[in-house]
Design a protein around this nucleic acid. Structure first.
Lengths: 216, 216
DNA sequence: CTGCCAACATACCAACCAGTATGTATTTTC
DNA sequence: GAAAATACATACTGGTTGGTATGTTGGCAG
């Protein structure tokens, strides 16, 4: 009976719920960091937003830094994976998929104003904290590799131009996305992001192998 | 005698020198902000680095915010102007000039690690402080307009492809530069910036009008 | 029923930080 | 050369911050 006594039927009226408390902390920290950056995000504000107290925070995380690391690994990483990596595994035409993802980037004013959380943290913490830097670098690497590999595969299927260097193109795509994100964040104007998306999409189209053109 | 009594012959042994003190404060603030961001830059650290005391700081600036604004207007703005706008006024082939500027971007490890001060501040302060945002937006606008106008002029001289939209191309160029800057800052690796520069240069070359190709 | 431990809550602290009040030495003005 | 204004230096403060030490409560094992 090795599986016995697992998941001990969570009572609905449970007053303390460890998993939820931790999750709430992560989400609240994510939001506060998104708002004002990691260094300027106050613990008290995070705690108020999460609806818990310092005791809970320091029960689950040994420091503010550890909380930040967890946000990177458990929130920002998975978010980026869901938005960029998973869709690329659909097996469809890589350029079509990439265009779809880029067109799907949010242009809602509040998202444009906030920018991309990944680049926000990378910008702020990379030179200051090696732990942040490495964890964020892993996300960038995963992202880049996912794009590069799908482009490589696209080349073998004759869908992507042969003279395109997958790793370079992937890096350029990410640089464009993040660069426009920053410009739009400063401009606080969805139009800037929309124009950026159009330009990126046009560039993506230019990667198609001849004879594999689509309309639109 | 309307011009009398101007520039009252500064004595060489002057103990107090208002202009220098202010300048030192600006430079020290610039460096500290470059290091740790505006919010996390401590006044005491700035003062120690400038070699003056709080009295001097609050004599010239009414608040830390005002000091930050001055750094944007009097240091970051002119820096960007000198690096991007002035070279474009040489009257030479615009693409050549742009390639020269991009190739001239520093790839020294310490510069790569620190990133671009303009984007650093824009990322950090745009959503938080309208005063910063507007001042930085002006710099971005000047930058973009300078590139766009030189591309437009290049089109009339047959040096730039007619199907290029100057404003869009200028925005894309800036997004690429800043995007790669951020990626390299996170990677802390000059190779990333060097690869970025190559890709940007390749893209710039693709803007040349047919029949106006150069080698290299 | 009881002890025990996980899961928090509360109260507190030392460090830091922007800003100020005040003092003072140097120039400039008359 | 005295008064006034400039150009700072020093000492201090009130508020905030990350972190800790300790208290409390719910739930489960025995």
């Amino acid at each position: 009976m090795l599986a016995a006594r697992k998941n001990p039927k969570r009572s609905a009226t449970r007053l303390r719920d460890p998993e939820r408390t931790r999750e709430r902390l992560l989400q609240a920290a994510f939001c506060e960091i998104y708002r004002s950056g990691f260094q300027s995000a106050g613990l008290d504000t995070i705690l108020a937003s999460a609806g818990v107290t310092k005791g809970a925070l320091y029960y689950y995380f040994k420091s503010k830094q550890a909380l930040g690391y967890a946000v990177v690994e458990e929130v920002i990483g998975p978010d980026n994976y869901a938005e960029w990596v998973r869709p690329l595994q659909s097996g469809k035409d890589p350029i079509d998929t990439l265009i779809g993802i880029v067109r799907g980037i949010s242009v809602r004013p509040e998202d444009v104003r906030g920018g991309c959380q990944l680049i926000n943290l990378a910008q702020e913490m990379s030179p200051l904290d090696a732990g942040f830097r490495k964890r964020l670098a892993i996300i960038f690497h995963t992202w880049r590799e996912a794009v590069a590999s799908v482009l490589r595969e696209g080349q073998t299927h004759g869908r992507v131009r042969r003279d395109v260097k997958p790793a370079d193109a992937a890096g350029l795509l990410i640089a464009m996305v993040e660069g426009y994100g920053s410009l739009a964040k400063n401009a606080q104007d969805p139009k800037v992001m929309k124009a950026g998306i159009r330009n990126i999409v046009d560039w993506l189209k230019s990667l198609r192998a001849p004879g594999n053109r689509k309309r639109g």
